[in-house]
Structures are given as structure tokens and as C-alpha cells.
Design a protein around this nucleic acid. Structure first.
Length: 197
DNA sequence: CATGGGATTGACT
DNA sequence: GTCAATCCCATGC
């Protein structure tokens, strides 16, 4: 746990979600920079862990550094980074990436898409990177999915804060974090995403 | 045991 | 703007 970006895994989930914007996700030859996250915690009803320990939610209660991958709407695989100590159900949903490498492979998996639509959503990025339910509860330090530090040649993004989207409960919590000005963020864009700094 | 609802996306009106 | 696809789990009878 020496790298700076891995300290995010030891923070409260809301701080972790903010810190993970700018870090990288790699699976095989494909990778991208995280440009959008949301925090989920067992104390609020939008979190799967709110329902307690079940066959579906148990990875959320494990120690940090593992992935929580679940099926959404019976169709899509959604990727989360499990954080906070073992016994506490909390995770950061990875909602969008800016493609970095393996872009040709992403196009094979996703079809002909505008580059900014390859990974501009939680279901899209798992498809582009080839991440399936078989990777649920696997280590994000050892792989196959690897959480890495921000690219060294890249300035840290300004991060915008807003309410989480696609949910009906606890919508008032400002737990969605986006890299300001980055068009790989999923719709609806938060207010001011493209506003001049 | 039957039903309803999602941390979504893409196709269509 | 609407809607279907399709699975896991919570709720209620």
C-alpha cells in the first residue's frame, strides 16, 4: 500500500470516490482513465449493502481492494471498487472511463462508436474492457483487473460533484464525481461540466 | 410461491 | 420522448 492512489482504498467511500477520478483501470490490453464515479454505502437505501449480507452483496462487506461486479437489469455488468474495512458494506461505482489503450479492441467489442461513447457509462466500460461477472470479488491489485495510479504525464482533473443518477432512493446525496470538462462522462452531464474554469 | 423493481443501454417514435 | 431485454433479490400473500 505504498502508492498514493491506493490510499483511496482506506478512506471513507465518499472520499475514495473523489480520489479515484483520474486513476486508471486496466484489463488485458485495454485501459482507461476513470472520469466518473459514485459512492455507495450500507447506511443509505440506494446501496445494495443496505439489504444486508446476501449471495449477491457479500463482496461489498469484504476488505478493500477487490472488485464487486454485478448484473444490472439482467443485462449489463457493473464494476465497483470495494472500500472501507471488512464488515462495512461500501463501494465506488466506476461510471465512465476515458479510453487510453486497446481502443481497437474496444471497437471490436462495442462496434463503431464515437470514441467518447466507448466507455461513457457503467455498462459500456465493462463491455469495452471485457469485464464480466466471472471477475466478481477478484483482487484489483493482482488482477486480472488492475487499479493503477493516474498517468504521470497528465494534470489532475478538477472534479465536479452532483447527485447520483439512475436511482430512486437517496437521490439528494451529492455522491457523484466527474472529471470537469471530460466528454467521456455519462449522460446526463452534471451542470457546468463543460463550463470554462 | 408470484410479483415487481432496478447503480442500463440501444433502438425506435 | 418511450420501451424491451432479462436476472437477482426483496416483498407480500
Amino acid at each position: 500500500m505504498s502508492d498514493q492512489h491506493l490510499r483511496a482504498l482506506e478512506l471513507p467511500v465518499v472520499d475514495a470516490a473523489r480520489m479515484l477520478v483520474g486513476c486508471t483501470i486496466t484489463h488485458g490490453e485495454t485501459s482507461g482513465v476513470i472520469v466518473e464515479t459514485e459512492a455507495y454505502h450500507e447506511i443509505e437505501p440506494a446501496c445494495h449493502a443496505f439489504a444486508g449480507l446476501t449471495n449477491r452483496t457479500w463482496p461489498l462487506f469484504e476488505a478493500p481492494e477487490i472488485a464487486y461486479v454485478y448484473r444490472s437489469y439482467g443485462v449489463h455488468a457493473l464494476l465497483n471498487v470495494v472500500v472501507e474495512p471488512a464488515g462495512v458494506g461500501a463501494a465506488v461505482l466506476i461510471r465512465a472511463l476515458e479510453p487510453l489503450s486497446g481502443i481497437a479492441r474496444m471497437h471490436v467489442r462495442r462496434g463503431r462508436e464515437r470514441p467518447t461513447d466507448l466507455c461513457s457509462g457503467p455498462g459500456k466500460l465493462t463491455q469495452a474492457l471485457g469485464i464480466g461477472l466471472d471477475l466478481n470479488a477478484t483482487s484489483l491489485l493482482r488482477g486480472p483487473i488492475v487499479l493503477g495510479p493516474p498517468p504521470p504525464d497528465r494534470a489532475a482533473p478538477r472534479v465536479t460533484v452532483g447527485g447520483r443518477i439512475g436511482i430512486t432512493r437517496a437521490v439528494e446525496l451529492p455522491w457523484r464525481f466527474c472529471a470537469a470538462g471530460n466528454r467521456n462522462v455519462s449522460r446526463p452531464w452534471p451542470p457546468g461540466l463543460l463550463a470554462p474554469v
